[in-house]
Lab assay of single mutants.
Amino acid sequence: AKPPKTVTVKVEVTNADGETQTRTVTLTNLPKDLKPGDTVTLPETGQTARIVEITP
Rank of each mutant, 00 (worst) to 15 (best):
T45A: 03
K32Y: 14
T22C: 09
V9P: 00
A1T: 13
T45H: 03
P31G: 13
E19F: 14
V9I: 11
I51V: 14
D38P: 00
P3G: 07
I54C: 03
P56W: 15
P56K: 08
V52G: 00
G46W: 03
I54G: 01
Q47N: 04
P36D: 02
I51L: 04
A16Q: 10
E12T: 10
L27P: 00
K32M: 13
K35R: 09
T55L: 15
D33R: 06
G18A: 02
P3A: 06
V52I: 14
Q47W: 05
T8R: 11
T24G: 01
T6E: 08
L30D: 06
K10N: 03
D38R: 02
K10W: 10
I54T: 02
V13W: 15
K2D: 10
R23A: 05
G18N: 03
P3Y: 09
T48W: 07
L34C: 05
D17V: 09
T39H: 10
T55C: 11
V52D: 00
T55Q: 13
T45P: 02
V52C: 03
K2Y: 13
T39F: 15
V7W: 15
G46Y: 03
E44W: 09
P43A: 07
A49Y: 06
P31H: 13
T55A: 13
I51F: 04
T6L: 11
V25D: 01
A1Q: 12
K32N: 12
I54P: 01
L34Q: 02
P4C: 13
E12S: 09
P56Y: 15
T39A: 05
Q47P: 01
T45M: 03
Q47F: 08
T55R: 10
N29W: 10
P3S: 05
D38K: 02
K2M: 14
Q47S: 04
I51N: 00
R50W: 07
T48I: 14
Q47D: 07
T24P: 01
L34N: 01
P36N: 04
D33I: 07
T48P: 10
P4T: 12
K2A: 13
E53F: 08
R50L: 12
E44N: 08
N29L: 06
T8H: 06
V40N: 00
E53Y: 10
V11M: 04
T41F: 14
P4Q: 12
V25N: 01
N15C: 07
A16S: 11
T39Q: 09
T39V: 12
P56T: 12
V25A: 03
P56D: 14
T41M: 11
T28D: 07
T20L: 10
L30G: 09
V13A: 02
T48E: 10
E12C: 06
E12K: 06
D38Y: 03
P4I: 13
I51D: 00
T48N: 07
T48M: 11
Q21R: 08
A1D: 12
R50T: 13
T55M: 15
I54H: 02
G46V: 02
T8Y: 11
T22W: 13
G18F: 02
T28Q: 09
V52Q: 03
K10D: 02
T6M: 12
T14M: 13
N29D: 11
G46E: 03
V11H: 00
T24Y: 15
K32Q: 12
E12D: 04
N15K: 05
K35Y: 05
V11Q: 00
N29H: 11
T28E: 07
V7R: 05
L34E: 00
Q47V: 06
T8L: 10
T26D: 04
Q21K: 08
V11E: 00
A16V: 09
K5M: 14
D38N: 03
K5N: 14
T48C: 07
G46H: 04
P3D: 11
T6A: 12
V11W: 04
T22E: 07
T26N: 06
K2E: 13
R50K: 12
T22S: 05
E12P: 00
Q47T: 05
T20D: 02
K10H: 04
R50Q: 05
L30R: 03
L34F: 06
A16I: 09
E53A: 10
I54L: 06
A1R: 06
L30V: 15
P56V: 14
G46A: 04
K32D: 14
T22R: 08
N15M: 12
L27T: 02
K2R: 11
L30T: 10
T20F: 07
T45R: 03
E12H: 07
V25E: 03
I51A: 01
G18V: 01
V40M: 10
Q21A: 09
Q21P: 01
K32P: 14
P31Q: 13
V11L: 07
T28C: 14
P36Q: 05
L30C: 10
V13R: 01
N15A: 08
T28P: 08
K35V: 06
I51H: 00
K5R: 15
